[in-house]
Amino acid sequence: MTVEERLQARWIELAGEQSGAVGSDLIGRYREPHRRYHTMDHLAAMLSVIDELGRDADDVAAVRYAAFFHDAIYAVDRADNEERSAELAETTLPALGATPELVGEVGRLVRLTATHRTAADDHNGNVLCDADLAILAAEASGYAAYTRAVRAEYRHVPDDLFRTGRAAVLRKLAEQPYLFRTPTARRRYESAARANLEAELAALSDERPDELR
């Protein structure tokens, strides 16, 4: 079974048989040619982490819906992808019979992925954001593949500007007391993610551009 087929099966399990066409359209967005990291593989990986952390959520179904929608709209030249993805969820889910409460929660969760800043008692938000950031704790080869994929998505940006922007994003993350909010994710991922961020920030400050390609 391909990644796309597995995602479709998970969508059907979540939203019901009548939602198949919606799921196909939604998952298909993750196959857009400009994507290198924000792909079906990223979505599948997020869902796997949510499976592991689901007991920490108040409504794991809402978190899974939010995962499907969180990068549904992704354009590297826009700053409102999360907002537009949330709006897509809010216009799509009611037609599938979702309650207003579920629709509102999914929209809220998708918007959280713009900053990954959540309250301590936001159990759904903590699970979703931890799943989105779990890649930061990947082993060396996986993290290197991740950074190459992100750079490829921004291949139109000159090296010096990319380094400055990427470093700012990483520093903002690193300045947080914790990268991960759920106890399980913090235990499993925090140390490795901190080490990866430190190593990437050091590489970004290196003046040898070939080492970042």
Score class of each variant (00 low, 15 high):
Met40Thr: 03
Leu112Ala: 10
Asp130Pro: 03
Ala15Asp: 01
Thr184Gln: 11
Asp132Asn: 08
Ala45Val: 02
His34Arg: 12
Arg35Ile: 04
Arg84Tyr: 06
Ala61Ser: 12
Ile73Met: 12
Leu173Pro: 00
Asp159Asn: 11
Gly97His: 15
Phe69Cys: 07
Ile135Arg: 08
Asp25Gly: 09
Ile135Val: 13
Leu112His: 13
Ala137Ile: 05
Ala174Thr: 00
Asp77Ala: 10
Asp58Arg: 13
Ile73Val: 15
Val169Phe: 15
Gly28Asp: 04
Val103Ile: 13
Asp25Thr: 02
Asn196His: 14
Ala167Leu: 13
Ala134Thr: 00
Ser85Trp: 08
Glu52Lys: 10
Gln176Tyr: 03
Tyr30Arg: 02
Ile27Thr: 00
Leu133Ile: 06
Asp130Met: 09
Glu32Trp: 15
Glu190Ser: 04
Glu153Tyr: 07
Met40Ala: 04
Tyr178Lys: 11
Met1Ser: 08
Asp58Ile: 03
Ala174Cys: 01
Glu87Phe: 15
Leu179Cys: 06
Thr184Cys: 02
Ala86Arg: 08
Asp51Gln: 08
Tyr30Trp: 06
Ala120Cys: 01
Gly54Cys: 11
Gln176Pro: 00
Ala66Ser: 05
Leu93Phe: 15
Arg6Thr: 06
Ala149Met: 04
Arg181Gly: 08
Val63Glu: 12
Ala168Leu: 06
Leu133His: 09
Glu207Phe: 09
Leu112Met: 13
Asp56Cys: 09
Arg163Gly: 03
Leu136Ser: 06
Ala134His: 11
Arg35Trp: 07
Leu102Gly: 00
Gly125Met: 08
Leu43Pro: 00
Arg55Ser: 11
Asp58Glu: 14
Val157Ala: 06
Ser85Phe: 09
Met46Asn: 09
Ala203Gly: 00
Val157Pro: 01
Ala167Thr: 08
